[in-house]
């Protein structure tokens, strides 16, 4: 009796339509785990520190695709796609900092880019991303605010960096930083003069003759994110991976100097010692991440050039 029941339950279970897509949907954690046990990630990237450049997703940059913006950059990081467009305005500098202009970065995650977002005001996630992006851009001082001054205490440029996500598949902060840097690199400020009589600023339209002034940037910040899942270090996680990861590490390195610009770790870096070629405790592991981030930053800098 018992045997017959097992036999009858086994047969349909064996032939049930548990397709890979269904398995992924119903049991995301074991699904990812099975992949990682085989030393490969769901999108085919290899696992491990010695895999070289293959652990990252393909990144590409298209500069200046939006002609209504003074400068713009379209970034693709794997499937993640976003556009950063710059708009310029003129405002009187803040009274406490008469020699500084403004940069105003905003990240928009519209309902278009993913079913996770609803139409309406920016979600918490978008607000957090905007804040972190602003922190990175201001703290790294990539665009010296003093270079935006037209007339001290009277007029300065406001550089709005609006990042619009078109396809949301993880690594948004990395892509947003890359997009902002790409757009800033390409930005040319029109020649502007402040008229003391009218108190207004008049600009010269950018044309073949008047090319405008490009701003010398400080060393560029380049952001790299890692996820940690079940003792494995996953560089540049996709959305599916990053929702399962227990901790995240974001490292922003400077393009030319060896300085770190921003390190953010959510959760403890608990990948198992010895796995993926990384030995030692948390400190060593973080150092390994920084080394990986440096090598990735070199690659990112090449595609920006």
């Amino acid at each position: 009796m018992a045997q017959s029941t097992t036999a009858s339950t086994e047969a349909p279970a064996g032939t049930s339509a548990l397709t890979p897509a269904l398995f992924k949907r119903l049991h995301p954690r074991p699904y990812l785990d099975r992949f990682l046990q085989e030393g490969v990630r769901p999108d085919g990237r290899p696992l491990g520190a010695d895999a070289g450049e293959a652990v990252w997703r393909d990144a590409s940059v298209n500069i200046g695709s939006i002609s209504t913006a003074p400068s713009s950059a379209l970034i693709r990081l794997g499937n993640t796609t976003l556009v950063c467009g710059i708009t310029l305005e003129i405002a009187p500098p803040d009274i406490t900092t008469p020699n500084q202009g403004f940069i105003v970065p905003n990240v928009d995650l519209p309902a278009l880019c993913s079913p996770l977002f609803r139409p309406g005001p920016p979600s918490d996630e978008a607000q957090v991303l905007s804040t972190r992006l602003r922190d990175i851009l201001i703290a790294s001082n990539v665009l010296p605010l003093a270079s935006l001054i037209i007339e001290p205490a009277k007029a300065a440029f406001v550089v709005y960096l609006d990042v619009v996500c078109l396809n949301f598949d993880g690594g948004i902060l990395d892509a947003a930083v890359l997009a902002c840097v790409g757009a800033l690199k390409n930005l040319r400020l029109p020649k502007a003069t402040w008229d003391p009589d009218t108190g207004a600023t008049l600009c010269e339209p950018i044309s073949e003759k008047a090319q405008g002034e490009s701003i010398p940037l400080n060393p560029l910040p380049l952001s790299v994110t890692f996820g940690i899942f079940n003792g494995h270090l996953l560089p540049d996680p996709t959305l599916f991976e990053s929702t399962l990861c227990t901790s995240h590490i974001t490292i922003v390195v400077s393009s030319t100097t060896s300085k770190l610009l921003h390190v953010y770790q959510a959760g403890a870096p608990l990948f198992s010692a010895g796995a993926d070629g990384v030995e030692g405790g948390g400190r060593e592991q973080l150092k390994a991440c920084i080394a990986l981030a440096r090598s990735r930053a070199k690659g990112l800098l090449e595609i920006l050039a």
Binding site: I90, V104, P122, P190, C203, P205
Partner: peptide, 20 residues
């Protein structure tokens, strides 16, 4: 006022171009 985004600084105006 929009508290969910970084807003424009006070008195910000669009660029005015010299007419050519």
């Amino acid at each position: 006022a929009d508290r969910r985004r970084f807003g424009a600084p006070e008195g910000a105006v669009p660029l005015r171009f010299a007419s050519t």
